[in-house]
Design a binder for these strands. Structure first.
Lengths: 201, 201
DNA sequence: ATTAATACTTACCAATTGGTAAGTTTTATG
DNA sequence: CATAAAACTTACCAATTGGTAAGTATTAAT
């Protein structure tokens, strides 16, 4: 009758939320374990160390993003449309999984020599970032600009889409829950507009 | 002949960089002090606690951003132009002060009940955010949409501008220094384009 | 020169961190 | 049922964390 046997995925889900809400350094294994009703060492049993637990969360995220990207690219050869679909899908993903945007931003702003980059290749989210940049570069608007410009544009779009969702709770305190939630309801539409306008100019 | 007397501003400059590069939780007072060649307690003498040191850094940042905002608003009544100037100036500021973008994103993604929001009002950067949102709302393109939409757009623009600079080192490892630096050289131009295109549609 | 305040330092400390060691229960398998 | 592996737990631990206490230089004002 004991609850026993937490599946590895349950652990990951909670850990992921902690990493997203408090950052890597701010997340304590004891806290995560406590919320799960497990001992800290249960975590360390499944994932050998804190960095590896983090990495496991990021690999799951990477998987989601990759699936999302390839789905968006499916059924058309039009790079503009592919990119639009991708960023719309990404926005929807952020809306339903609140921890994703913070994780993405965390991975990107994590400096070398810190947590993420010290891990074994491939770098987290690299499988997602590379095709995304390639997608921007395949676009009529940006294919003349070279890799560096495509990278800059891809990161710009990513940042534009991420921040509102990542800052959700914070902004709710600042400007009220209703304003933020109302704004978030426009997120998909805004993302679509943004991409179009950024590819049209 | 002793070096003696570090000015308070030197301490802040180093602390600020640490907070930006490693986040609040990842920053240790001992590390900051060590880099300054001072004892940890020298820091605690000037700023009473770690949260207050952080707050002091943010207040300085807030000051810079406010100055930047009001300068951008000076000399014209055209909201579009004001906003464009503001975000261009912000981009330039990010280019010259590498720690600023990470701090801004850190402040925004810091959840309530964590570090920043537990401090005394006003919330950090609030003095900057409010007029910025108001500026978006004053714009012909967005003045019909209400506060929530203006907030969403303001955060979108902020995110679009921040991330490339905040992720600089990380992206350099991923895609090479030259690509990132080349992309950053386009940052101001991109920011200007982005604002125009986002106000034009 | 005396005084008072500021700017420190050394010495501690309790709490928390990630992690190890060793043992116990549970589960699946033959 | 036997057995081995997986899923834990309790008990520790060294290191680091932010912070306090108390004393010492240094500086500036009287």
């Amino acid at each position: 009758m004991k609850p026993t046997r937490q599946t590895r995925n349950d652990l990951l889900k909670v850990a992921r939320r902690h990493f997203a809400e408090r950052g890597y350094q701010g997340t304590s294994l004891a806290d995560v374990a406590a919320e799960l009703g497990v001992s800290k060492q249960a975590l360390l049993h499944h994932f050998k160390s804190k960095p590896l637990l983090y990495r496991a969360c990021l690999d799951l995220l990477n998987q989601d993003l990759l699936h999302l990207l390839f789905t968006a690219m499916d059924g058309t050869e039009d790079a503009d449309l592919q990119l639009e679909r991708c960023l719309v899908a990404l926005t929807e993903y952020y809306l339903e999984d609140g921890s994703a945007p913070a994780l993405v931003m965390g991975v990107l702003t994590d400096a070398p020599g810190q947590v993420v980059l010290s891990a074994a290749p491939p770098l987290p989210l690299q499988d997602f970032l590379e095709p995304l940049v390639a997608l921007v570069q395949a676009t009529p608007r940006w294919q003349g600009g070279g890799f560096a410009e495509a990278l800059a544009v891809a990161i710009e779009l990513l940042g534009a889409i991420c921040l509102l969702s990542a800052a959700r709770k914070n902004l709710s305190v600042r400007f009220g829950v209703s304003a933020v939630e109302q704004g978030r309801r426009l997120a998909v539409e805004h993302a679509r507009d943004l991409v179009r306008v950024r590819l049209g100019g």
